[in-house]
């Protein structure tokens, strides 16, 4: 029966330089199924609605429970993870597109290297003396831990950047995810030691001051990370830093 099938339109692209094109697929409806299981159905039967045999759709996924961040794509015009996009909650026909702010590798699979490069730029790590046993870590109240925990749930999925009007392929804006990581590491008793370097890194072109406060990042973040609060907080930290540099150094 036709009504038991789902129509899925996929924006495909054979390679980074190729032209995108659309293909339409039909997969059987199953209760509680998600976009991943639809794409898996297409793998098992890679033919379009017109009956044309095509290459299976290429996409990135791994954990399928929204902790790895891999399967992020634009579903019905909105960026999100494919694994938590339940079919019965979506408008039909469903459209799938790759994220537009990152170079497409193939079909729905994009290259998010830029995000990881940004983590290097802001030294998103804690510099320890070594891995040998030197006893307990710093003592800190659970409240502070809780504040850091929400930030450390960021899975570098790129939703916040895809939805950010300030972030584009041809600029070098660092974006909300990176700023939240700066806040995360600056909030750690040991991480604080490198605070100045981290703040310096977000004061250049594409840094914190380029944020236009559209605040879409926080709306689309699947982990509900307080991104806008983090941006303001890093804003405060950089303000104090520049004042210190200018007048008290």
């Amino acid at each position: 029966m036709a009504s038991d099938n789902i129509q899925i339109k996929v924006k495909r692209q054979d390679g980074p330089e190729s032209k995108p094109y659309w293909q339409e697929f039909e997969v059987p409806f199953k209760p509680h199924s998600n976009i991943i299981s639809c794409l898996q159905d297409i793998q098992r039967n890679p033919s379009t609605c017109k009956g044309e045999r095509v290459n299976p759709v290429v996409w990135e996924c791994n954990c399928l429970e929204e902790v790895c961040g891999a399967c992020t794509m634009v579903i019905n015009g909105r960026v999100r993870q494919a694994c938590t996009a339940l079919v019965h909650k979506l408008d039909h026909p469903i459209t799938l597109e790759p994220m537009s702010k990152f170079p497409v590798v193939r079909d729905l699979h994009v290259d998010r290297t830029r995000m990881f490069r940004n983590l290097k730029k802001v030294k998103a790590w804690i510099h320890v003396d070594g891995t040998h046993d030197i006893g307990e870590g710093p003592i800190l109240p659970d409240e502070e831990r809780a504040k850091r925990y929400v930030l450390s749930e960021c899975m570098t999925c790129g939703c916040c950047l895809e939805a950010c009007p300030q972030f584009s392929k041809d600029n070098n804006f660092l974006g909300a995810a990176t700023f939240a990581q700066v806040r995360l590491f600056n909030a750690h008793p040991t991480g604080k030691f490198d605070q100045e370097q981290r703040l310096d890194a977000v004061m250049g072109e594409g840094g914190i001051a380029d944020c236009g406060n559209a605040q879409v990042c926080v709306e689309v973040c699947p982990k509900h990370i307080p991104l806008t609060e983090s941006i303001a907080d890093v804003g405060r930290q950089t303000t104090l830093q520049i004042l210190k540099n200018l007048f008290f150094k």
Partner: peptide, 17 residues
């Protein structure tokens, strides 16, 4: 530098942006 996307992401703050 702005890539307006109000049509896709209709949030008040994005409108104000």
């Amino acid at each position: 530098n702005a890539r307006y996307n109000l049509a896709r992401y209709r949030y008040p703050r994005n409108g104000l942006y």
